[in-house]
Amino acid sequence: MRTIAHLSDLHFGRVDPAIPPALLRAVSAALPHLVVVSGDFTQRARVQEFEAAARFIKDLPAPVLSVPGNHDVPLYDVMRRWLSPLGRYRRYITRDLAPLYADAEIAVLGVNTARSLTFKNGRINRRQIDAAAARLARCGPNVMRILVTHHPFDTMDGDPGQGARQAVLGRANMAMAGLLQARIDVILSGHLHTSGIGQSTTRYPLPGHAALLIQAGTATSTRRRGEENAFNVIRIADRQVAIERMAWRPDRGAFTSIETERFSKTAVDWVHLGSPAGPAADRG
């Protein structure tokens, strides 16, 4: 079994200062094999914000795989935005914009969707999809293939309007077709500051394969958009995935488990197994 702690939208520069120490304790208690951070480490891509984010990452209890978010591109520093949009991210977080973690059970690949030409929205291109497919093709047939992006492939709120279309990753239709052909099993993302779980078939009814879409809320930002600060603990074993949502409880000064959803992978889709009282299995 493999355990992934999925954090997103830290937004150092606009955090509740009580949360980061409690978040580190909660992530450590989950005993993750890997910590995934799906973008927006900072609020305005300032040096002091990246320094705070780097200190936080250093204290995490497992290897960290991360992708940048749109807030990690300078907004008001116009020269830096165009000439070196991810220069500070690469200096303080990681130089690798397409990181890969792979072992005998999971392969987790990050793809950068942040762009200097868009202030909020993200995009993905054919070259990135082809590269992702080529790298993941080397994995064994029983390895769970997981993609990490900042911007989501779906809002999972049933909203078909203009706001929902703008929130979804640019060129997502092209990307999803290529990813499903590469047999991506799970996609982790952030950006919306809300948690959610869905299936690719809802928005992308492509035949033969489906991806489980897992959205993480904001772990530490004060901009919560109606949802408590939260992160996910994802446990993967025997083609089953359990997603445990951990939510911040300020009265307790701690993150607590509030729900767990379990899914099983079939040849063509994911089957929802319900909401058990606890995790799917003990850590192996």
Rank of each mutant, 00 (worst) to 15 (best):
Y76F: 15
H33I: 03
A267F: 05
M246T: 04
L179M: 12
Q43C: 03
S38H: 04
G140N: 04
A104N: 11
L31A: 14
V47R: 12
E51L: 14
F56C: 04
T202V: 15
G198E: 05
F231M: 01
S84E: 10
A237Q: 11
E228F: 08
A172P: 06
F12L: 07
K120F: 14
A114C: 10
A137Q: 14
K265C: 05
A254D: 08
D40P: 02
A216F: 06
L169I: 14
P279T: 02
E228K: 13
A281H: 15
A133F: 02
V78P: 00
A107Y: 03
V64L: 07
H209C: 09
R223L: 09
R138C: 03
H150V: 09
Q162G: 01
P20V: 07
R249V: 01
L86R: 04
G87H: 10
V268P: 01
N112E: 07
V37A: 06
H209P: 04
A133W: 01
S264Q: 13
V36G: 02
D159N: 15
R203F: 15
D130S: 13
L97E: 08
P63D: 13
F41L: 12
R115M: 07
L117Q: 12
N229G: 09
Y204A: 01
N70F: 03
A172R: 07
G253R: 15
R245A: 08
V78A: 05
N70M: 06
A211L: 11
R44S: 14
R46W: 11
D282C: 07
V78T: 12
L60T: 09
S28T: 15
S200T: 14
T260R: 10
I243S: 05
A102V: 15
L24I: 15
Y101R: 02
L188V: 06
A254G: 05
T155V: 15
R249N: 08
G190Q: 06
I187C: 10
F56P: 00
M246H: 06
P32Y: 14
M79W: 11
A102R: 15
Q166C: 08
A219Q: 03
R14A: 13
K265Y: 05
Q166L: 15
T256N: 05
D238V: 04
S221M: 01
M1Q: 10
A172M: 08
E259R: 12
V78D: 05
P85E: 04
R145V: 14
M246P: 00
Q215V: 04
N142D: 14
M176G: 06
R44E: 13
D269M: 12
A175H: 08
V27M: 01
V111C: 13
H193V: 00
A133D: 10
H272N: 08
P63K: 13
L75A: 11
R88Q: 05
A22C: 10
L75V: 09
M246F: 04
E105N: 06
I124H: 10
L65F: 12
L206G: 08
L65V: 14
A175E: 01
E227V: 00
L180D: 09
R283L: 02
H272Q: 02
G178D: 07
V233D: 00
